[in-house]
Amino acid sequence: MVAGLEKKICRVAVSGYYGFSNSGDEAVLRSILLALEEQGRAAGVKFEPVVLSADPEWTSRMYGVQSAHRMRPADLFKTLRECDALISGGGSLLQDATSAKTIPYYVGVIKLAQLLGKPTFIYSQGIGPVNRRWMDPLIRHVMRKSAYLSVRDAESAEYLGRIGVSKERIEVVPDPVMGLPLPANTAAGRDGAAAGSVPVVGVSLRHWRKDGADLERAVDALAELASRRPVRLRFLPFHTPEDAETSKLVMERLSGRLGEGSTVELASPGDDPQRMLLEVSRCDMLFGMRLHALIYAANQHVPMLGLSYDPKIDQFLGRIGLTAIGTTERLDAAEFAAAAEKLLDDAAAWRAEHEDAISKLKQQSQRPAQQIAQLLR
């Protein structure tokens, strides 16, 4: 705490995609809560978060904070009225790829807080794609009226600039999860680090194409790698139960296609995002389709190959000097296997090449919490 300052108590509502059993979004929430606690302590502010959640009881139990139901108007109104401010973010909240209802919901929460006279803070959001142009004025209106505005990539900042938000007000920061620590009293330890042990390849896949052609290509790529050398393919379900079902499907299709000494297994880290971070830390490399699987890997300096299904994957990989090994439309099995072997054979070179970019992102991940604490102080 800053010397000579009386600690100020600030009750803040936190709006995002929380309470849906999505490890990536839960990691965002955990990261924001920890950053607010740390930066609040430094600024002499005690944050009392109230999380808007699809499952308030679970969220309160998991994080030790107050929660309110995100879809019950009376609960939402009461929470915002009783709070001192609203934090909206992080994650890909303002996009219409998944539903036309997503942007109106999150913009509506921000607007309600503003109508109630509460300062609003946009916390490391990834904005877009926005395919319906009638959404632009809705986003522009609440962004212009927010007290602080940060996005997680340059492309989001460019979009806001195009629709009329002053670029001088927009801060580009990393995804909050870059600052997530491992669980207390644990340490990263790569199972494959010991000489002669079989390397662990983390695999994070999701269902995307309706015809499943992207998953078939992933099966071919993993089978090619597992036939060239012994590997432990460890599947990591980031969104349950969907990702677990997808993983089991891919594992079944790998049956009979593994080389001698190669195995497949499914991780069960539970609901705590820091336990999943620990799982990723124990991999020798990661093949990821989920954005936060890649962010977890970067957080723990685990060499990675990304499979792109959305521009946000390419945007994140670009920030650490990488490009995707393939997309949901194209993935060459031999090219994938060769790239994976290179990472497994010389992980140290990969870490040395990307160390500076990753360290910079980890440091910058605290910036939004720092700014919010100063503004509320």
Score class of each variant (00 low, 15 high):
149 L>V: 15
160 L>W: 00
146 S>N: 06
144 R>K: 15
152 R>C: 04
159 Y>F: 14
145 K>V: 00
154 A>P: 01
146 S>R: 09
138 L>Q: 12
145 K>N: 08
159 Y>V: 04
147 A>I: 02
134 W>I: 12
156 S>P: 06
161 G>S: 12
140 R>N: 02
138 L>G: 03
132 R>K: 15
144 R>A: 03
143 M>W: 07
131 N>M: 11
138 L>M: 15
160 L>E: 03
161 G>Y: 05
161 G>A: 13
159 Y>G: 01
132 R>P: 00
142 V>H: 03
154 A>Y: 03
138 L>A: 11
154 A>H: 10
130 V>C: 06
138 L>P: 02
144 R>G: 14
146 S>D: 06
160 L>K: 06
131 N>G: 10
152 R>W: 07
140 R>F: 01
147 A>T: 14
153 D>W: 00
157 A>M: 11
159 Y>P: 00
148 Y>L: 15
149 L>T: 09
136 D>R: 13
145 K>T: 01
151 V>F: 09
160 L>A: 04
136 D>Y: 15
137 P>C: 04
140 R>T: 05
143 M>N: 03
151 V>Q: 09
148 Y>W: 14
136 D>I: 06
158 E>T: 08
148 Y>M: 13
132 R>G: 02
134 W>D: 14
144 R>E: 11
134 W>E: 14
130 V>Q: 08
152 R>H: 09
136 D>C: 05
159 Y>M: 07
146 S>G: 06
144 R>H: 02
131 N>P: 00
150 S>P: 00
142 V>P: 03
147 A>D: 12
137 P>G: 06
134 W>Y: 13
159 Y>L: 14
152 R>L: 06
143 M>H: 05
135 M>F: 14
151 V>D: 05
146 S>F: 08
140 R>H: 04
147 A>L: 11
130 V>H: 09
133 R>I: 11
142 V>Y: 08
151 V>P: 01
137 P>F: 03
141 H>E: 13
157 A>L: 08
132 R>T: 12
142 V>S: 02
157 A>W: 08
148 Y>R: 14
135 M>R: 11
149 L>M: 10
161 G>P: 00
148 Y>A: 14
142 V>N: 01
161 G>L: 07
156 S>C: 07
